[in-house]
């Protein structure tokens, strides 16, 4: 069921003509986009500070509006209204495009994520593949940004980002494949659907067959690879402030910086969304509506990244690559193989 159908039935329209379908899809897309941006807007200037503060015994913003919430508006408007500096030697089109590509790549991913209550913009058969493909466009944006800034720190940051993404994309996909072995499809809605069954019932509480419970090993692998994919501690080498200032975003100011910043957060949420879809039953959950559960799950992942950020040292770039190629990759293949055997024997 596509979002146009959902909206159509909610509005009491019968079967949809192509024009109505198109219009309703547009409305749906606008809704999803707004939802994602809203989340990032809350996360970026406010929640991140509050969460970090909670981990470090502080209070953080509390003067501007209730709980400091108005800081969201203040931060956003202030950054947008700042002077936009384009460095002299910047490679123009690339420098300007990079932030856009970064944000767009992350936003596109949400198109195929089932968010519950029938909210899903599109449900292609290759949904999962699309998700990974789109998410990894981000690394192009980063390398563009790094190269175009004409700054050595940016350059190092961009190169690091690519090395990291290449090293972690493969384990990520391979681990996701092991889930596909269970479901036999790449379609996201069906992956979610397959997790609705009951795994076991303990004392009247039935545990759904989320793949996190079915294959916890793959789940952990996926989380690690995902952390690296979204570039958070301990894998935040591309922007490691104490080493290479701010990595690829060193030279960005004003609007472009806002986009960069947003893009990063959208990526974290996209990471959370993928995790939720593949391993945590998508929008499933008791009592509350599916959409709320979906939101809770992506925020849980966000919280997790922030926790890691305040408590874990970052690894070195060579170690990072090593962990990726020598550790995660092998483990993910082992996982794939075992899953294949188990699935082959049982099913």
């Amino acid at each position: 069921m596509s979002i146009a159908d959902t909206l159509g039935s909610a509005l009491g329209l019968g079967s949809l003509g192509p024009l109505e379908d198109f219009l309703l899809s547009l409305v749906g897309a606008a809704f999803v986009g707004t939802f994602v941006l809203l989340n990032t807007a809350v996360a970026g200037p406010w929640a991140k500070r509050k969460i970090t503060a909670a981990f470090t015994d502080r209070v953080a913003v509390n003067r501007v509006g209730p709980f400091g919430l108005l800081i969201i508006i203040a931060d956003a408007v202030r950054m947008l209204s700042k002077e936009l500096i384009i460095p002299d030697g910047a490679d123009r089109p690339a420098f300007d495009l990079a932030p856009l590509v970064l944000v767009a790549s992350a936003l596109l991913g949400f198109a195929v994520v089932p968010m519950g209550n029938g909210i899903q913009l599109a449900d292609p058969e290759v949904g999962l593949a699309f998700l990974f493909a789109v998410a990894s466009i981000a690394s192009i944006a980063l390398v563009m940004a790094g190269y175009a800034s004409n700054n050595k720190y940016s350059m190092l940051g961009g190169l690091r980002a690519v090395a990291q993404n290449v090293a972690y994309e493969i384990p990520l996909v391979v681990t996701a494949m092991s889930v596909v072995l269970f479901t036999g499809t790449l379609q996201t809605s069906q992956i979610v659907g397959a997790q609705a069954e009951t795994l076991i019932t303990i004392a009247g509480v039935s545990i759904p067959s989320w793949y996190a419970f079915v294959n916890p090993f793959a789940f952990v692998l996926f989380i690690v690879a995902n952390m690296a994919e979204v570039g958070r501690n301990p894998f935040d080498v591309p922007e490691a402030p104490t080493e290479i200032v701010a990595g690829y975003q060193t030279e960005y100011s004003s609007v472009y910086f806002v986009l960069m910043y947003l893009g990063e957060f959208i990526h974290i949420f996209l990471g959370g969304a993928i995790l939720a879809t593949v391993f945590l039953g998508g929008p499933a959950g008791p009592v509350l509506p599916g959409f709320v559960w979906f939101t809770i799950k992506i925020w849980a992942f966000f919280l997790f990244t922030q926790w890691a950020r305040s408590a874990l040292p970052r690894v070195r770039i060579d170690q990072l690559i090593e962990i990726g190629w020598k550790g995660l990759l092998e483990l993910s293949f082992v996982n794939l193989l075992l899953t294949a055997i188990i699935v082959g024997v049982i099913v």
Binding site: T56, D57, R58, A240, S310, P313
Partner: peptide
């Protein structure tokens, strides 16, 4: 040292300052 290895404003930095 924690800032250098962990990234800015990690928990250790704050605890040390506390």
């Amino acid at each position: 040292f924690a800032i250098d290895v962990y990234g800015d404003f990690s928990a250790i930095f704050m605890y040390a300052f506390r």
